[in-house]
């Protein structure tokens, strides 16, 4: 792998830099303190970070900019201190960090009883909701319930569910990103699904009684 850190012009555009480098070169540039590496990293993974945060927290989250910045700061600090093998797939690594940050925020909001704002535009931004107001309201209510339930579940199970069932990563990828064994991730996934089922069924029962 070439080490272009010293040869790139400082004025290179993000897109050019990002497309001409592989992940390892970006990580190498970060380690060397090169500013272009920050631009390249941002260009490489910002869409993954934003989408992950939007899925976990809602697309209209008012703190999105702050959270995106937090995710990138964690990425840079982590990548500059650790070996490359954890981060050979920058986009996967970024999705994992974004999921972690998103779940943390979700849980913190539940702890503060600041449950999901009805003004976050979440359901309105879902293109699957169909055109009718009734469908959109129902979709919005369902998503809010899911997020409320997820926020009360063990964080490792929630992160595994999101990475695997929501973002579509394979078990092997999740295991690598979570630095856990395949068996452990499989166990978290199974238990997470069971727990989510149990809690959603409980909630439905409660709603049915009321």
């Amino acid at each position: 792998m070439a080490a272009p850190a010293q040869t790139l012009p400082a004025t290179a555009t993000n897109a050019v830099v990002s497309s001409s480098l592989d992940d390892a070169a970006i990580v190498q540039g970060l380690g060397a303190g090169q500013e272009w590496a920050a631009d390249a990293l941002y260009e490489r993974v910002h869409d993954v970070v934003e989408q992950t945060l939007r899925r976990v927290l809602g697309p209209g989250d008012q703190e999105l900019t702050d959270l995106v910045q937090e995710v990138f700061e964690r990425l840079i600090v982590t990548l500059s201190e650790e070996r490359l093998d954890h981060a050979t797939k920058l986009r996967g690594w970024a999705a994992a960090v974004a999921t972690h940050v998103g779940v943390d925020v979700l849980r913190a909001r539940v702890r503060r009883r600041r449950l999901f704002s009805s003004h976050d535009g979440w359901a309105e931004n879902l293109s699957v909701a169909g055109g009718s107001l009734e469908n959109r309201l129902e979709a919005r209510a369902e998503v809010e319930r899911v997020r409320r339930v997820l926020a009360r579940m063990p964080a490792d199970q929630v992160e595994t569910l999101i990475l695997h069932d929501v973002l579509g990563h394979s078990l092997e990828e999740v295991a690598k990103l979570a630095r856990a064994t395949h068996a452990a991730v499989q166990s978290r996934l199974t238990r997470g699904r069971q727990e989510l089922d149990r809690r959603l069924n409980l909630e439905r029962s409660a709603r049915g009684r009321s």
């Binding site: 697309p59 931004n125 879902l126 998503v143 899911v146 069932d165 929501v166 989510l196 439905r204 029962s205």
Partner: peptide, 22 residues
């Protein structure tokens, strides 16, 4: 309590396509 498995559809609702960001 029912024996349904609502987690699949619930997670699918989170994983649906997102509107294009501004």
């Amino acid at each position: 309590m029912t024996n349904e498995q609502p987690s699949k559809s619930a997670l699918a609702s989170l994983g649906g396509p997102l509107a294009v960001a501004d």
